[in-house]
């Protein structure tokens, strides 16, 4: 064979090599798309918000006590929306943390494998119900029931929306907390049983303290879920901006405000159009904060064992 010429077999191999490289590149691009998505989110929220903050000062945005962006006398106090978001999330957590944690302890420390086989799909279905259906449930089923117990409750309220939102995040807390408790080594439990502890005593005094950062992580991640929830609030909490800390009142949240604006017909580039991006940026920053704390807590408990 003269030098410089490649045998057919070798050139076939070279072809194969290039094919492989091409496929790897395509697969890499698919994986990199997720980074592009994040960059896209940040770009679109920040660039529209820059237009917004060129017109409204950031101090007014954070300190004004009124949110009337579409009125002639426009005010842009995001705290009005943040208060609705925080109050409804708090109600949701007051429901979801006790119920979710109880289910997690029960599933991880008490239930046999057969109960778990039944319980897991129930929880999954509960978490898979579309939020618009939960919204319907909150407005037309839960609110009338709560009105019997609390006659002063208006037709739209943060309380009933938050309550249903709590039911929605129970499965989330239950499954993350159960994971954390199952990660606690059996030897710790056996030690406690050997000392004569009952199951409940072991769960409360041994397993929970050992899994504490994991439990905390599940709560924090649940908060970020609640803060980002939209449809339940848009349907059942009313959409009037209302600076309040009282769950018995109707109020708009960051998310339901975005829905309200998007339902109308706002021209691209108007101040109303820009407000939803400023609101979205605020929402993203709040959820990001909770997520970072949550991930950090989860990483911490994983390292322990």
């Amino acid at each position: 064979m003269t030098p410089g010429r490649v045998s057919p077999r070798l050139s076939h191999n070279a072809m194969r090599h290039w094919n492989e490289r091409l496929i790897e590149a395509v697969l890499f691009l698919a994986a990199a798309l997720s980074v592009l998505t994040t960059l896209g989110i940040v770009y679109i929220l920040v660039s529209e918000s820059i237009h917004f903050f060129a017109r409204i000062s950031i101090v007014d945005f954070l300190t004004d006590t009124q949110w009337t962006p579409l009125f002639d006398d426009a005010h842009f106090g995001i705290m009005v929306l943040v208060s609705g978001t925080l109050v409804s999330s708090l109600v949701a957590l007051l429901v979801a943390i006790p119920v979710g944690t109880t289910i997690a302890i029960y599933l991880s420390e008490f239930a046999g494998s057969r109960v778990r086989e039944i319980a897991k799909p129930i929880l999954e279905l509960l978490g898979g119900i579309p939020t618009i259906v939960y919204g319907y449930f909150a407005l037309l089923v839960v609110t009338p029931i709560l009105q019997v117990l609390l006659p002063n409750l208006p037709g739209f309220s943060l309380l009933s929306a938050g309550f249903v939102m709590g039911i929605m995040i129970v499965p989330y807390i239950a499954s993350l907390s159960e994971d954390a408790m199952r990660a606690v080594p059996m030897s710790l439990r056996e030690g406690a049983y050997a000392m004569g502890s009952s199951r409940l005593y072991t769960a409360i005094h041994v397993v929970i303290p050992a899994a504490l950062s994991g439990l905390a992580a599940s709560y924090v991640l649940a908060v970020s879920r609640a803060v980002g929830e939209t449809m339940i609030l848009a349907v059942a909490a009313g959409m009037q901006p209302n600076l309040t800390w009282n769950p018995m009142e109707p109020a708009a949240t960051i998310t339901s405000y975005i829905v309200q604006v998007a339902l109308g017909d706002l021209p691209h580039g108007s101040i109303g159009y820009q407000t939803i991006f400023a609101a979205g940026l605020t929402l993203l920053l709040i959820t990001l904060m909770f997520n970072i704390v949550g991930q950090w807590l989860r990483a911490k408990y994983k390292e322990n064992y």
Partner: peptide
Amino acid sequence: NLAAVPSIVYGLL
């Protein structure tokens, strides 16, 4: 992190 981004933010994107 993307899995935890609220769905409405995807709507804005």
